[in-house]
Design a protein around this nucleic acid. Structure first.
Lengths: 110, 110
DNA sequence: TAGCTATATAGCCATATGGATATATTCTCG
DNA sequence: CGAGAATATATCCATATGGCTATATAGCTA
């Protein structure tokens, strides 16, 4: 599980890979289509796709002699859940909830 | 901005660093306290802290001769916002909203 | 000021990563 | 089956990363 977080976060740490995901958010695409926007060799793109696939962020299909990729959003959910544990830190809703409970239930926190 | 995403995602790609953030979620801590749970040298921890700080995920304070670290949750918000663009993909709420609007407002999507 | 504590920095090493080019593999189609 | 298209794999290279030990720096405290 820790390994999965490692894989997902490090897959997302590269702008090329994030751009590929951005493209796939618009729908299935072939390797050639995914490579097109970049000044990178086809093997470089294949390598990026392998990283994304091993992280579970995309999946490969098969269609004639192409291997179209699709987004696999579950992996993103995995890290969104991880981040959610910290959500209470970036607004005061948690503290405000505490205050609210103190008042409503008539006790003080220590 | 892309650079910031790179820095944050790659900072989070390491389990030691995520554990450090987990500790800091419980409150301010010194380098020694942060190093304690790990079988790593102090310099190794300092290096991790530097990575986290450069990503904006933590901040250093000063207190007597220690330099306590605190969580800086804004950076996590940055990537949460990035992920939010994909949120519609992991449940069908987006589509269900579409259906709902179709019925309520009495039109069909094409 | 001298010494102790807390932490940072320097230098070194092994492995990982991202890129390129060359080549292999797998389909499709004539 | 043979050729061409789409993609994967192999190899090589340069740089980045994560770890260690040794050492430097900064602030207390006697």
């Amino acid at each position: 599980m820790d390994d999965q977080l490692d894989a997902i976060f490090s897959a997302l740490a590269d702008p090329t890979r994030r751009a590929i995901l951005g493209r796939l958010a618009k729908g299935k695409a072939t390797v050639a289509e995914l490579a097109d926007p970049f000044a990178l060799s086809q093997p470089a793109i294949s390598k990026h796709l392998k990283v994304l696939e091993q992280a579970g962020l995309i999946r490969s299909g098969r269609e004639a002699n192409s291997r179209p990729r699709v987004l696999e959003p579950a992996a993103l959910k995995t890290i969104a859940d991880w981040i959610a544990d910290y959500t209470r830190f970036w607004d005061q809703s948690f503290d405000r909830l505490d205050d609210y409970l103190s008042k409503v239930q008539g006790y003080e926190n220590d």
